[in-house]
Write a protein that binds this DNA or RNA. Structure first.
Length: 431
RNA sequence: GUGAGUGUAGCUCAGCGGUAGAGCGCCGGAUUGUGGUUCCGGUGGUCGUGGGUUCGAUCCCCAUCACUCACCCCA
């Protein structure tokens, strides 16, 4: 007997009941970002491995042990993208848009990381993100954060906190790296195994260790914010002032360090305690050196990425919204003449009402059995066509979700009637 | 990559060393062309997979795959 095929570990199917939620979520994000005049960009899921190792950083866990990398038929090494920023930068650079003035773009789609799956962490997961290139000043950092806040608002997500930090310039970060390594080396006997390894590879990451002993040790470490350069400090102050004047709550977290090497200056993270160990809903920051690293001329950048699976866990949708997955009208068709009449009638309705969701009953059966299916379909109305109606060129309309009588109208009046009936029902705008 | 837990019908789960059950769902029916409630009947699983122990395994052991949670990592 052949083995049952199943999806790859950590890669999930999205079935229709869930897919509608994804559509609603994606629609909300898309409309919000577009209201800030961010334009969508789509890049390939597969890139040369080098793009990621150069941008994300050789010393990061993502590049070291989490990428899906394999040789192409010609020997090139390819990688399934673990994040979206690198591909955006590559594409904008390749097509000359980086030098064509400031660019605001957004993307969404699947990302891949070979990690042990758990709640809020899959091997194929989905992110939506925004990036802005060519803008140095802190207004754009503030805009990024405000966009996120607006998305939480639209989705009805309440339990999120904004954490903020500044890493300073590349140079000041290098300087602080030295200071931190000196401090930690002096206390090497107190470091855990992870931290000892990171001392040489990526010492800043020790700052956000979850180990309480490490956190205690770091209490008295020289603070990162004390060593950042004055320009970065000014930039950070401007950002904070803008957030304050827009009434946004945030917490300065001096230990906030991102796992990707390309960040400098502003870093931020939206977190929740409702999701267990994977509480980061969205994270981002500034990456002023990234474009240069990937081979362009120095161009500042800021961006964020949000984890859509995690956001979906935080979101509830109304019955009206979820109802977009079920028909508005169920066509009850009994007899060959009714079938022929009904299919043509439905096509004419769709010509005039492109968003109408009308489900044609297939496979015959008694009125009784067809009504049972109409009910189960969650449709609002049954549109009934039997031999009698066909002969008279009429249809019967039966409301299924409210206490009202069935009535008969001429087929010529059907379009107007349906327009009236469905007007009050929300969700007519297509997704 | 490390640790722990789980895997029985489409779903939620019960069960037992002698080859399985409930509820829900699904299909059909309760005389003429009408759903939701009710009643009746039916469909449904080689007990995740492979091996071992045993006269015999869904149950015990090992391996493997998947899921869940935590570490880790990060969105």
């Amino acid at each position: 007997m052949t083995e049952k095929l199943q999806a790859i570990r950590g890669m999930h199917d999205t079935l229709p009941d869930d897919a509608i939620k994804w559509q609603l979520l994606e629609q909300t994000i898309k409309s919000t970002l577009q209201s800030y005049c961010y334009r969508e960009i789509r890049t390939p899921i597969l890139e040369k491995t080098e793009l990621f190792s150069r941008s994300i950083g050789e010393a990061t866990d993502i590049v070291n042990k989490e990428m899906y990398t394999f040789p192409d038929r010609n020997g090139d090494f390819l990688t399934l993208r673990p994040e979206g920023t690198a591909g955006c930068v590559r594409a904008l650079l390749q097509h000359g848009l980086i030098n064509a003035g400031p660019q605001r773009v957004w993307y969404h789609g699947p990302m891949f990381r070979h990690e042990r799956p758990q709640k809020g962490r899959l091997r194929q997961f989905h992110q939506a993100g925004a990036e802005a290139f060519g803008i140095q000043s802190a207004e754009i950092d503030a805009e990024m954060i405000l966009m996120c806040a607006r998305i939480w608002n639209k989705l009805g997500i309440k339990d999120v906190q904004l954490q903020l930090n500044s890493l300073g310039s590349y140079a000041s970060r290098q300087k602080y790296r030295g200071i931190l390594v000196d401090y930690l080396s002096a206390h090497k006997d107190q470091l855990d195994e992870d931290s000892i390894n990171r001392l040489t590879t990526n010492p800043l990451r020790i700052l956000d260790s979850k180990n309480p002993e490490m956190q205690a040790l770091l209490q008295s470490a020289p603070p990162l914010l004390d060593s950042i350069d004055s320009e970065s400090a000014d930039h950070f102050a401007t950002l904070r002032a803008l957030l304050n004047s827009n009434g946004l709550d945030y917490e300065i977290n001096p230990r906030l360090v991102r796992g990707l090497d390309y960040y400098n200056r502003t870093v931020f993270e939206w977190t929740t305690d409702k999701l267990g160990a994977q509480g980061t809903l969205c994270a981002g920051g500034r990456y002023d050196d990234l474009v240069e690293q990937v081979g362009g001329k120095a161009t500042p950048g800021v961006g964020f990425a949000m984890g859509l699976e995690r956001i979906l866990e935080m979101t509830g949708f109304s019955n009206a919204e979820l109802g977009l997955n079920s028909p508005q009208i169920y066509q009850v068709l009994v007899g060959d003449a009714a079938l022929d009449n009904g299919i043509k009638l439905a096509e004419r309705l769709r010509d005039k009402m492109p968003t109408l969701r009308i489900l044609m009953h297939c496979g015959g059966g008694s009125f009784r059995s067809q009504f049972k299916k109409a009910d189960k379909s969650q449709a609002d109305y049954a549109l009934i066509l039997g031999e009698e109606e066909v002969a008279k060129n009429t249809v019967n309309i039966k409301p299924l979700r409210k206490d009202a009588e069935q009535y008969e109208i001429h087929q010529d009046d059907l379009l107007d009637e349906i327009t009236n009936l469905l007007q009050p029902i929300q969700g007519q705008t297509g997704l």
